[in-house]
Design a protein around this nucleic acid. Structure first.
Length: 605
RNA sequence: GGGGACGUAGUUCAGUUGGUUAGAACGCUGCCCUGUCACGGCAGAGGCCGCGGGUUCGAGUCCCGUCGUCCCCGCCA
């Protein structure tokens, strides 16, 4: 292979096959960098030594596929190339076979500047020849293999589940597949194998896993593709801690496979704490959290401060700190103080920012001193205070809850952290901060539908202590003030550097509790039967307690390779409009196909 | 559904206040070159300025629409 030859091979005959990465024609001597998956070797064709082969080598162009038979030669000291692994040797070409020519490609795998993504995606086969892509795909292979091996060793069976299954109205939009045999009926591609894996527990396969494709017809993001791969697992009789151990185990194996050490167990944090301190359910621990400076003040000070800055004193006043941001100019500081300057935060403002430390220090020196000490602010840190506006735009008033306020602050923290990333240097891609976020709420309020919905999915168990709260509020699905929102689920997320890697829960295994959950969700027995009948029935035939989790493989590989988007770790990804530019999918289909399926297409205006 | 950025040669980009023949680099073609490795030198080809409309004596440049790519909000149990 092109990356294999080393000085000890000198004198040997060798055959190399690969692509012409670059040619350097010096007249009587021609150098070819021959490339394959494993690396690159310089091949030399010398007119003096072999005029016929040299002539033939003159025909070579970029990306031609060739086979070279030659002799491995140790290079002279002054011609060694330290930049490539095979740089101490070269292959002296004795025979050259042209396996295939190539048109001029729109770009070259060896180019230093990348073309735009549209071109890369259209000519994906060329893009994938690039070292970086080869590395990403190789890493992906190693990671899945490590996970597969680890879980197999732990007694998990890899079991496949159907891709053509039933549509369920919950959650994301389904991709539908029409049935020819049952006209007017549709399969749905699975958003996850959730119910199947639970059924597998009911079937006695007490440890299941699958590295499986999932499909969700929702808008894309840099870290969201319509089809993506999950490491899905489920086990019988687990405490959450047992699931976490398994995940920590396979992640350790996966990161090792990619050459990284990680520390386990991962720290844990409740959902409440994550929201309060980081304003997010997926905190990035590489930077300090926020502190509520009211804690450092007397009630009188809080009242005075709040009045002075038109802030609400019953909501947190958060100190957001970016360590080592260095000097920040006055102009810059004024921009920072402008709420609208942030990418993530839009809509009517209810956040009041204090971003000018000099002025604050001048006005209230003692208080400032106190706040800075309390927040561990050091010289060179960028910090600001964020409170809830006393009289915000009318449309923002209704949303002014602690949670919502903290989330807005969390976005400010995140945007600032991004903006000053080059300065604070805390966003090291190799610095892995894992975290378990636990005790997610069971239900969340749906503003559009004006009702409570499951925050995770309707088969999630709740904390035993919260059962009475469920029973007391079982008929309040349409009451936004209902304590249903306080019920904690046995649901957990694993988070890495601000990215949600995976999400799981302990499931309900008793049908009486399942029934209560459906009731609390305002779903009648009939409705529940219609939607999940097969599953509810299965629950009645001896269901062991069980629970599990699913992690996004693509996201793991993305972080491991330092990629900025999932498209860098998926060989054939889709664009933001869910189009595959290489195969040009989706496409219309012909009338006959539609007719056979009993489908009519309505032309959009 | 909404907000933002971008679209000029095969590729990456430049293009002044609207002004006459739209440039550079890499790649490509030909010639020269025996130690290059992002080889070098000389010569050359290559443009629907995304598309459509408008303003103007005149549009790559201004305006409107549209298409495409990217980022974000909504959405993603």
């Amino acid at each position: 292979m092109c990356g294999a030859l080393r000085p000890p091979d000198a004198g040997q005959k060798a055959v190399l096959m690969g692509w012409v990465n670059r040619r350097r024609d010096l007249g009587s001597i021609i150098f070819i960098d021959l490339r394959d998956r494993t690396g690159m070797t310089q091949v030399v064709f010398n007119r003096e030594r072999n005029p016929a082969v040299h002539d033939k080598a003159q025909e070579l162009r970029n990306e031609y596929v060739i086979a070279v038979v030659g002799t491995v030669k140790r290079r002279d000291a002054e011609t060694i190339n330290k930049n490539i692994a095979t740089g101490e040797v070269e292959l002296v070409g004795d025979e050259l076979r042209l396996l295939n020519v190539a048109k001029q490609p729109p770009f070259l795998p060896g180019d230093t500047v990348l073309p735009n993504e549209e071109v890369r995606l259209k000519y994906r086969y060329i893009d994938l020849r690039r070292d970086a892509m080869q590395f990403n795909i190789e890493t992906r292979h190693k990671v899945s293999k490590a996970i597969r091996d680890y879980l197999s060793e732990q007694g998990f069976f890899e079991i496949e589940t159907p891709f053509m299954t039933r549509s369920t109205p919950e959650g994301a939009r389904d991709y539908l597949v029409p049935s020819r045999v049952q006209p007017g009926c549709f399969y749905a591609l699975p958003q996850s194998p959730q119910l199947f894996k639970q059924i597998l527990m009911i079937s006695g396969f007490d440890r299941y896993f699958q590295i499986v494709r999932c499909f969700r017809d929702e808008d894309l993001r840099a870290d969201r593709q319509p089809e993506f791969t999950q490491i899905d697992l489920e086990m019988s009789y687990p405490q959450p801690e047992r699931v976490w151990e398994v995940v920590e185990g396979f992640l350790t194996a996966a990161f090792n496979a990619a050459g990284h050490e990680i520390k386990t167990p991962f720290p844990r944090m409740s959902y409440d704490q994550a929201i309060r301190v980081y304003g997010s359910d997926k905190p990035d621990l590489r930077l300090p959290g926020m502190v509520d400076v009211r804690t450092a003040m007397t009630p009188e000070e809080v009242a005075e401060f709040a009045t002075k800055f038109r802030m609400r004193k019953e909501l947190p006043i958060h100190l957001i700190r970016i360590p080592n941001a260095g000097e920040v100019s006055g102009t810059e500081r004024r921009t920072i103080g402008t709420y609208g300057a942030y990418q993530h935060v839009q809509g009517p403002s209810f956040v009041q920012l204090i971003s000018d430390p000099k002025r604050l220090a001048k006005d209230s020196p003692e208080l400032t001193e106190k706040i800075l000490r309390f927040g561990n602010v050091e010289a060179g840190d960028l910090w600001l205070l964020a409170g809830a506006l006393e009289k915000p735009d009318s449309s923002a008033v209704m949303d002014q809850s602690v949670q919502h306020f903290c989330e807005k602050c969390g976005y400010l923290r995140f945007d600032l952290a991004q903006k000053y990333a080059p300065k604070h240097g805390a966003f090291q891609k190799r610095d892995f901060h894992f975290l378990w976020v636990t005790d997610f709420p069971m239900f969340e309020w749906d503003k559009t539908e004006k009702r409570w919905n499951p925050a995770h999915h309707p088969f999630t168990s709740l904390h035993e202590e919260d059962m009475s709260k469920l029973e007391a509020n079982i008929d309040s699905v349409n009451d936004p003030k209902s304590p249903l929102g306080e019920i904690r689920a046995l649901a957990y997320d694993v988070v890495l550097n601000g990215t949600e890697l995976g999400s799981g829960s302990i499931r309900i295994h008793r049908q009486d509790i399942q029934r209560k959950i459906f009731q609390a969700l305002g779903m009648s027995d009939e409705e529940a039967r219609a939607r999940f009948g097969f599953f509810l029935e299965a629950l009645e035939y001896g269901t062991p307690p069980h629970g599990g989790i699913a992690l996004g493989l693509d996201r793991i590989v993305m972080i491991l390779t330092g990629a900025e988007s999932l498209r860098e770790v998926i060989p054939f990804p889709k664009t933001a409009r869910a189009v595959d530019l290489m195969v040009d999918a989706p496409t219309p289909v012909n009338e006959a196909q539609l007719k056979e399926l009993g489908i009519g297409v309505i032309k959009a205006k």
